[in-house]
């Protein structure tokens, strides 16, 4: 008899294909995760940029890392929304009564979050290039940037999974996204933290997004990353481990 484990990756890719259709068929998702960050980038560069002093000659170069993180943060609510609906509408029950690996359905959503963010970040980088973004970074640095963005996505995705799996209503499922949306805004994504008043600056400098933004910025401009990269990695990996543990527990309890 065939074993369900041997089909795990095949099942997961079918699940991925399904959720990617959900993403591409939702104008709302495309606007929030791709068009809105691009609009913000345009706004900050061409409207506000003239008044912002960052100490770099090219504000797009300064801004891009933060915009990428905003795009990823914006996508998180949709992951919990899709998970919640699958739970609520009995889709997961249907899958779980079939001979497929139990976690394939969950991993399908996680993978969808990764793949859809790769696409939206790639589009954002293309637009940034048109707007004058230039990087002297080599292949290895770009690889490191991709890795950090993937870890950041996974960290937020697992938090979203907890919300989507344990929520009692759609509102509850997507509520997780709001505090996450704020993190990039109160960080060094738009302006250096040195310009902020004391308490705000203290928060900005000690929350995960700033260290991730600084690391990506250093990598893209060929500057030494210093300690920031370890702080960024510690945040991402730490959140992934904790959130994955709880998401897995909620999932096992619910199904």
């Amino acid at each position: 008899m065939e074993t369900t484990q041997s089909y795990f990756f095949m099942d997961m890719s079918v699940m991925l294909g399904r959720s990617m259709r959900h993403v591409f068929r939702s104008m709302d998702t495309i606007i929030t995760v791709t068009l809105m960050p691009i609009a913000m980038m345009l706004l900050f560069v061409y409207v506000l940029g003239g008044a912002i002093q960052t100490g770099t000659d090219n504000y797009v170069n300064y801004l891009l890392p933060g915009i990428m993180l905003i795009a990823i943060a914006n996508s998180i609510g949709y992951t919990s929304y899709r998970l919640f609906l699958d739970m609520e509408r009995g889709i997961f029950e249907r899958f779980h009564s079939m001979p497929i690996s139990r976690s394939a359905a969950l991993w399908g959503h996680v993978l969808t979050s990764l793949v859809s963010n790769v696409i939206s970040v790639a589009v954002i980088i293309l637009v940034a290039l048109v707007m004058g973004f230039r990087s002297t970074a080599g292949g290895l640095s770009w690889l490191a940037v991709a890795g950090i963005l993937a870890l950041f996505t996974l960290a937020l995705t697992w938090i979203a999974a907890i919300a989507g799996l344990s929520a009692k209503s759609v509102d509850g499922a997507v509520a997780v996204a709001y505090p996450i949306h704020f993190l990039p805004l109160i960080s060094s994504a738009f302006v250096p933290t040195a310009s902020m008043p004391g308490p705000v600056r203290a928060f900005a400098e000690n929350q995960p997004v700033t260290s991730i933004v600084e690391t990506i910025r250093s990598l893209l401009s060929n500057q030494p990353v210093g300690n920031e990269i370890w702080v960024a990695l510690a945040w991402c990996v730490g959140i992934i481990l904790v959130a994955y543990f709880f998401a897995k527990r909620v999932y096992q309890k619910r199904v």
Binding site: R89, G90, S97
Partner: peptide, 21 residues
């Protein structure tokens, strides 16, 4: 349970169809 799942199918209480597909 795997043997059971191979040989049955379930139509749950609420039509579990994917509405976006």
């Amino acid at each position: 349970p795997d043997g059971v799942r191979q040989s049955i199918s379930l139509t749950g209480q609420f039509a579990a169809v994917d509405e976006i597909l």
